[in-house]
């Protein structure tokens, strides 16, 4: 025998707390992510253990970025383990999350329109295509800026998704025998 408990809402303060915890968690992990790739050039300057860690971090990013040195920013004499566009996307994402949190409007990010997403994809894609066709000469800066725009837009979608997940009604099943007192 089962009892279905369905609650359609939560107390506003509980929602607020859950939003804050979830948004700060996302911000924390995005900062860790950016910290990982930004730390590599400095780790390579350290002792052997730090260099091994740097190699592992670079290895970690290998499947998700071409890591071409000519298309990557350099810090402390070493290339970052992700290209300028990826650097822009990840940094833009982190800045977007941070901005939404600091602006205190996290709970208002509900339904970003898909044209907003297409704009971000188009601006980055167009820059890449025009550069490929030699119509426009892209630089590290233009790649990172268009990537950052896309990253900021994705941050809005992630926050909206988080909002919807946190906002969901509680719906779970509890078996009666578990609810009964033992004695």
């Amino acid at each position: 025998m089962q009892i279905k408990i369905h609650s359609t809402g939560k107390h506003p303060s509980e929602k607020g707390l859950r939003y804050k915890i979830a948004s700060v968690t996302i911000l924390f992990f995005s900062m860790v992510w950016c910290g990982l790739f930004l730390s590599v050039p400095f780790l390579l300057k350290g002792n052997l253990t730090l260099q091994k860690i740097a190699a592992l971090i670079r290895f970690f990013f290998t499947p998700i970025c071409h890591q071409m040195e000519s298309r990557s920013f350099h810090l402390a004499g070493h290339a970052l383990p992700v290209c300028a566009r990826c650097t822009g996307i990840y940094s833009g994402f982190m800045i977007g999350i941070l901005t939404i949190i600091l602006a205190g409007r996290f709970w208002k990010v509900r339904h970003p329109t898909r044209s907003f997403l297409f704009f971000g994809l188009a601006i980055s894609g167009l820059e890449a295509i025009l550069s490929f066709l030699n119509v426009f000469s892209s630089t590290l800066l233009t790649r990172s800026i268009t990537g950052a725009v896309l990253g900021i837009i994705i941050a809005f979608f992630v926050m909206a998704a988080l909002n919807q997940i946190v906002d969901r009604p509680i719906n779970h099943e509890v078996k009666v025998w578990k609810e009964l007192p033992v004695n």
Binding site: L44, L48, Q51, K52, A55, L56, R58, Q67, M68, E69, H78
Partner: peptide, 10 residues
Amino acid sequence: ESREDFPSEF
């Protein structure tokens, strides 16, 4: 092949 700045142990 693309990396020269790795420790030899790696």
